[in-house]
Write a protein that binds this DNA or RNA. Sequence first.
DNA 1: CTCTCGATGCGCT
DNA 2: GCGCATCGAGAGA
Length: 196
Amino acid sequence: MKRLERAFYARETLTVARQLLGQRLLRLLDGQRLGGRIVEVEAYIGQEDRACHAARGHTPRTAVMFGPPGTAYVYFIYGLYHCLNVVTEAEGFPAAVLIRALEPLEGLPLMRRRRPGRADHELANGPGKLCRALGIGRELNGLDLVSSDVLFIEEDAPIADEAVQTTPRVGVRGDAPALAAPWRFLIADSPFLSRR
DNA sequence: CTCTCGATGCGCT
DNA sequence: GCGCATCGAGAGA
């Protein structure tokens, strides 16, 4: 399948988030292809968005969000988990899309081994879980998804507007317009979402 | 099924 | 020190 190119990521973050639904995230691990269909994402957009890590400016941690579109932004959270984002918009504007859930399609046996005791629909139905299932850690932070053979996104069947639902972002609250905005995108009838 | 709560590292105040 | 873009175990219904 064809890989998503830089121009795909170099657009408005809400457009990229919406269009990422249905695309196939892939990780090459131990010579195997692991991954699946993206079924849930969230947009984090610029310094005005107080939930965006880059809201407080350019720091060592947020540097990659200011970098070129198509870059992986991986961060460590709660002392235990990693979350994977894709950097969007023009270089210099800090924004990204968080990948929140996958429908596992490739490399199921290895993913099951990495997530013992979990049913298939729980292998990657959360941002921390999918990183665990695919073996994504901070060593992949700053990786270029457009040129990497280790982590990349391939084009798959587009999702119709009728199947897409939006909600406020998980774990984000507040009265500011950006905080209340429906910037979580999901495939409504998917059994692989992080929450119903 | 739902809810509550603790684990745990690190970036920033 | 504090607070996380989280998860899973355990309790109750």
